[in-house]
Structures are given as structure tokens and as C-alpha cells.
Amino acid sequence: MIKVGVVGGTGYTGVELLRLLALHPGVQLEAVTSRGEAGTPVADLFPNLRGHVDLDFSEPDPERLAACELVFFATPNGIAMKMTESLLNAGVKVIDLAADFRLKDPALWEAWYGMPHACPGLLEEAVYGLPEVNRKSIADARLVANPGCYPTAVQLGFMPLLEYEGIDLSCLIADCKSGVSGAGRKAAVGTLLAETSESFKAYGVPGHRHLPEIRQGLETVSGQQVGLTFVPHLTPMIRGIHATLYLQLDDPDLDLQSLFEARYRDEPFVDVLPAGSHPETRSVKGANHCRLAVHRAPASNVVVVLSVIDNLVKGAAGQALQNMNIMFGLDEAAGLRGIALLP
């Protein structure tokens, strides 16, 4: 059994991580930390975990965490980077679900996140945890930077075409929609029911923090600079991301369906739907799957890719478990075989 600690278990990502860990056959949950809820039974705050998680929230005690084999950080940006180096020195592996180790350039991190990086020396070592790209590196990693939710949906949608040479990389468009849980479990006017219900809006158009992460990932795959327009939107639903992706294709004869099916044939959590399909966010609710469909716009060289994920699962906690399984040589799908919820 892998002895696991979770730092920051009170947010939406945290409770989703605990839900999945509680049912994982190879995990022993040792600690769930929260400074504000220390001493409170986890199941009192999250009644869905009653009978599954019997721990109390505790202070983030370095010695207790150092006794774990793996520590997940489900904390706000800027927390994991202050504790990770000491955990790694103690022989503990780390998966950070925030953004502390996603960007390789510390100056870029500081520009987008408004703080200097506490351990820039670890940025090069950190492995970006998108298994469909970095599975071999994840298997050998001590430190994994779990991808963001928008970046996961966008990169998986664009990837087969980025690996093909016949596209125009200067004008990629990612038009993305997210449920309100993506904003986190906090009191904020903009995510109140009365503010978001029966409404729809774009945000972060001048620049969203996921933009440099997406661009970095796309350029890593393509080996070239890309021109990317990324516009996120807030939709009146709790879970889900829908990414509609556009690009120009130079080869009018390319069989797009076969290209996507071949690329993801052996990927357990990417599902390429039949030609002509339109994936729905509800088809991945609660599941660690990305469902894709690829279309060619009529009388045009424009390709349209549709990509849907659950932002809390494949976009966060589920992908973190997938990375854990790879890091410890387990069945990659262990604890992640749940079927999406309908309705």
C-alpha cells in the first residue's frame, strides 16, 4: 500500500482527490491537512466521504508528511513550492495539482502569478504530468506538475495535429467553456448561483494564467513556436470543460478521423468518438476521460476539434491519480474505472 498525504483537502479539487483515493485499492491515506479545519473530521465537512475517510484534518506537520511515500498538494498557487524541496530530500514523491511547477521559466511564473518562485532549481526537474505525452518521464519522476484543466482539454485536442506537419501553427484558436467549480471553493460574488445561473460570459481575454502553460505544452509537442488565441468562458454548470479548437490545415486529403484514432488508440482515458459526433460535458461527469471529435468545416481548410473533460477529474484529481499510478508502477487505470454520471 502506498502511504499518501494530501495537503489542502478542503477545496473542490481536494474532496475529489479524497473521493478517488478512498476507493483506490493500493492507497493508505495517512494525512489530510488544513490549517483552518484542523481537528475537524473530514467526513463532517464532506459527508459524501462518511464511511470512507475516517481521518481528521490536521495541521501540515512536516514530520508526518515526510513519513508518507507520496504527497499531493491540492493547495492554492504558491504553497507547494515552499514545502516540496524538504519532502523530496526526505525521499517523498510529490504531485502538485496547482501551478507551482508547470512553467519552466521562473521569470514567466513570476510575471503571471505575481510572486517570485521559491525553488526555481526544481523547475527543470519537475515533469509535466500529461501522461499522453510524458508517460515515460512520469514513471521515473520524483516531482510531477499536474496539468491545469483548460490546458489538458486543449492540448489533447490539438496534439494529433501538432504531431502532423501539415498545419499552420501561427493561428491556433482555443474557445473554451468551464463550469463554476473551476473557480474553486471560495466565497466570491462572481460564482454565486444568482450571478452565474442563466448567464454566460467570457473572461480573461487580455490574458489568462493558463495561456503560457498551454503555449508551452503545444510548443513542446510541435517543436515550433505557436500563435495561440485562448478565450475562456464561464457557463452555468458545476462541472465540465468544453474546448472548441480551430486551426488551418494545408493538406485537403488528410484523413482526420484516422489520424486521431491512431494517436489515441492505446490511451486508456482518451476516447475519439465516431466521425460526425458532438461530445457533451455530461458524458465525462465524474470520470477520468477526455472525449474528442474532429470535424472539417464545410468548403474550408479549417479543422474543428471538440474536446470535453470533467475539470475536477481528468482536469485535476483523476489525472493526479493517473500520474501516481504511473510513478509507482501500478495499473494506470487503478481507482479510475468509474463510469460518468448521467443524468
Rank of each mutant, 00 (worst) to 15 (best):
E69M: 05
I339G: 00
F230D: 04
Q257T: 06
Y164V: 03
G338W: 06
G26Q: 14
K201N: 10
A43I: 06
L256A: 09
D250M: 13
Q224I: 04
L29W: 04
S178G: 14
L55N: 00
C149A: 15
F57A: 02
L249R: 06
G9Q: 13
V284E: 01
C68P: 11
A38V: 12
L108N: 07
T196M: 12
E124T: 14
K285G: 00
G157C: 09
G184I: 10
C68R: 00
Q155D: 02
L245A: 08
V42E: 03
S170W: 04
L342A: 08
I326C: 03
F200N: 10
V308P: 01
V180W: 15
A275E: 10
V189E: 11
A202G: 10
E16N: 15
E163T: 12
A145F: 05
D251K: 09
Y203I: 13
Q224V: 06
L17W: 11
V231C: 11
V226T: 00
S258E: 13
G11Q: 05
L172N: 04
A141K: 01
A317M: 02
L122N: 03
L18G: 06
Y264E: 08
E261W: 06
F230K: 08
G148H: 09
D105S: 09
D253R: 12
G51R: 02
P120G: 08
T152P: 02
V144E: 11
G114S: 11
F200Y: 15
D251S: 14
N288C: 15
V180Q: 11
P147C: 10
L211H: 13
A118F: 10
A111C: 01
P252H: 07
E125L: 01
R282S: 14
L306P: 00
T75M: 01
A99L: 07
E267Q: 14
V53C: 02
L234I: 13
I241F: 09
P232C: 05
A297C: 05
A126L: 07
V226A: 02
R50W: 07
Q224R: 15
T196C: 10
N323M: 00
G190L: 15
M159Y: 13
L306Q: 10
I79P: 08
L23E: 15
S199W: 13
D56E: 09
A340V: 02
A174I: 08
A90I: 11
L143T: 06
H278L: 12
I173F: 12
V226D: 01
A299P: 00
L192T: 15
R185C: 13
T10D: 02
F230N: 01
K186A: 14
L97R: 08
L161E: 07
G286H: 00
G11R: 03
D266Q: 13
K186S: 13
D96G: 02
E280K: 12
Q224N: 13
